[in-house]
Amino acid sequence: MIQTKITEMFDIEYPIICGAMMWICKPELCAAISNAGGMGNITAAIYKTEDEFRGALRKTRELTDKPFTVNITLLPSINITPEHHKMYLTVCAEEKVPALEISGAPIDKACGMEYIDMLKKAGVKLFHKVGSVRHAIHAEKAGYDGIFAAGIEEGGHPLNDDVTTMLLTPRIVESVNIPVVTTGGIANGKTMAAALMLGADAVMMASRFMATQECDIHANIKDELVKRQERDTTLICKSVNLQGRALINQTTQSVLDVEREGGGLEKIIPLITGDQCLKAWETGDVDIAPMMVGQSIGLIHEVLTCKELLASMAADAEAEIGKLHKKLIA
Score class of each variant (00 low, 15 high):
residue 42 I to W: 11
residue 145 D to A: 08
residue 196 L to G: 09
residue 259 E to D: 04
residue 156 G to A: 11
residue 173 V to Y: 10
residue 285 D to T: 03
residue 139 A to Y: 03
residue 142 A to D: 09
residue 38 G to H: 10
residue 179 P to K: 15
residue 230 E to K: 12
residue 80 I to T: 13
residue 173 V to Q: 12
residue 257 D to W: 00
residue 173 V to C: 15
residue 196 L to S: 13
residue 176 V to N: 09
residue 68 F to S: 01
residue 165 T to C: 05
residue 151 G to Y: 01
residue 35 N to G: 11
residue 51 D to A: 14
residue 288 I to D: 05
residue 316 D to G: 01
residue 295 Q to W: 02
residue 233 T to W: 08
residue 168 L to M: 09
residue 191 T to Y: 03
residue 54 R to F: 08
residue 203 V to H: 12
residue 69 T to S: 11
residue 307 K to M: 05
residue 128 H to G: 03
residue 172 I to A: 14
residue 83 E to T: 04
residue 296 S to W: 00
residue 197 M to V: 03
residue 46 I to F: 14
residue 108 D to V: 05
residue 251 T to G: 04
residue 146 G to V: 07
residue 324 L to F: 11
residue 329 I to K: 15
residue 305 T to V: 04
residue 74 L to A: 05
residue 186 I to S: 08
residue 94 E to P: 05
residue 183 T to A: 14
residue 202 A to L: 10
residue 181 V to I: 15
residue 284 G to V: 04
residue 138 H to G: 00
residue 115 Y to M: 05
residue 28 E to L: 12
residue 33 I to T: 04
residue 157 H to W: 04
residue 52 E to Q: 15
residue 143 G to E: 03
residue 8 E to A: 14
residue 32 A to K: 08
residue 321 I to P: 01
residue 258 V to P: 00
residue 310 L to P: 02
residue 8 E to Q: 15
residue 252 T to I: 00
residue 50 E to P: 02
residue 56 A to W: 10
residue 42 I to S: 12
residue 287 D to V: 02
residue 136 A to Y: 08
residue 54 R to P: 06
residue 233 T to M: 04
residue 207 S to Y: 01
residue 4 T to W: 14
residue 73 T to F: 13
residue 223 D to W: 00
residue 300 I to E: 01
residue 8 E to W: 04
residue 310 L to N: 07
residue 143 G to Y: 11
residue 304 L to Y: 13
residue 294 G to I: 00
residue 330 A to N: 13
residue 13 E to R: 15
residue 12 I to L: 13
residue 57 L to D: 01
residue 146 G to K: 12
residue 6 I to M: 13
residue 242 L to V: 00
residue 158 P to Q: 08
residue 136 A to K: 07
residue 251 T to N: 03
residue 274 G to L: 02
residue 200 A to Q: 08
residue 211 A to S: 14
residue 114 E to I: 02
residue 264 G to T: 09
